[in-house]
Design a protein around this nucleic acid. Structure first.
Lengths: 226, 226
DNA sequence: CATCGACCACCAGTATCCTCATGCTTTTTC
DNA sequence: GAAAAAGCATGAGGATACTGGTGGTCGATG
């Protein structure tokens, strides 16, 4: 079990780490929100202890960012014990909330408790990467696409094109660009292959292909998703 | 399924939106009662999450206003857990009542539950949106336009422009404004694209395009429908 | 091995969109 | 009230995108 400890106060990070590793947990450290998100991307992390007041990117924002793609337990740490902060934290998706100063043993107990619940639920399997746009949810892990909860069957190429557009949500990609990225080779001039695939995707993800809600054309430029 | 989230605390709106969109729901946001009512008019909304304590127009008043014309499920959100408030809210027409702080997953579960009940009752069929102006009837659900009972074939852009004008019946919209709303991007100067589309629309919905009955020009300002 | 179905590429015809040039109408200016 | 300016309407054509259909490839199936 690997735990990420995030606080801008290095002494606190060190002391928490000490207690956790004494319990047999593997510990990663970060000292602001951005750093935390980096570590999360680069490592398998099972739980995060997160301070709220931090420079760069505060705890709440970090948490919200995290929750866009992942579901691991997060214990918030804060000096404020006011209800409003607690509410905000829990609403933003925290699993627990501990106010400073705290008893290290209590923190460890809470960590154990969260991990127990988390692993027992088999959620560890569910660590996935989602890209969401309106009612369209793309799971880049299992390569599946859901529309308003309904699974949509796309062919491999269709999926690749959609994922590419989803990863560049809002940005317009020309047919050429799409061809290069999906096929990994130069496109031929006078080819409307992309257009045909776009039509097929639309037939599957748009209610009314004439009025695309998601996959839109930008005249003379290319396609975009938004 | 589109959900409107209303709270004056932007952080809360953001976090709720996050959880909902991860579930594949399309989300709209508003930060006070008036704004909420506007969004409700301009969009097809299937459920609303509504905070009670808000400036401008509070949640209860907003709810009562809404209930004069529509029947979608509404989940009230409040910091107060007193029975009196709960009763007041439910009496005013709310379908559920959640007190802060709440567990996001619980809220999502309640949303799902309300939507299930709502859609299973077939109420969603009744939420058809018609805009009628004289002999002109626009069905925003099927994106079709009828003129004196006859179906009119409009191209997607033509339809969008007409729908936009219809939703703002009587109000004058400048070419710029129309461009921004329909294309979702800034307009270019010295462009008479809108004028051309307006002509095409007129050719289809007006008997005598020279003397428009519906789509009228307001000199120096823009176009309007009435 | 033959058959079938899924998937993909390509083509040609059609629809849609935008631009340009120009004519017309209203407003402003003198 | 006439000329100038500004705003809108019109017609036509080229560029771009969409659509339906055809044929080819490939792997699965019997």
């Amino acid at each position: 079990m690997r735990i990420l400890v995030v606080d801008d106060d290095r002494d606190i990070v060190e002391s928490i780490s000490l207690f956790l590793s004494a319990e047999g947990y593997s510990v990663l450290k970060a000292f602001n929100g951005l750093e935390a998100l980096e570590k999360l991307n680069e490592n398998t992390v099972h739980l995060m202890i997160l301070d709220i007041m931090m420079p760069q990117l505060d705890g709440i924002k970090t948490l919200m960012k995290l929750r866009q793609s992942r579901n691991i337990p997060v214990i918030l740490l804060s000096a404020k014990s006011e209800d409003a902060d607690k509410i905000l934290g829990l609403t933003a998706g925290a699993d627990d909330y501990v106010t400073k100063p705290f008893n290290p043993s209590e923190l460890v107990a809470r960590v154990r408790s969260q991990l127990r619940r988390y692993t027992s639920l088999g959620s560890i399997e569910k660590e996935k990467n989602y890209i969401v746009t309106g009612g369209l949810a793309i799971d880049t892990e299992s390569k599946t696409v859901k529309l308003d909860g309904e699974k949509v069957r796309l062919t491999p190429i269709e999926y690749k094109i959609l994922e590419l557009l989803a990863k560049n949500k809002g940005r317009v990609l020309s047919a050429d660009e799409i061809y290069r990225k999906v096929w990994n080779e130069e496109s031929v001039v006078g080819d409307n292959t992309i257009a045909v695939h776009v039509r097929h995707i639309r037939e599957k993800i748009e209610i009314n292909p004439k009025e695309p809600r998601y996959l839109k054309v930008v005249w003379g430029i290319g396609y975009k998703l938004d």
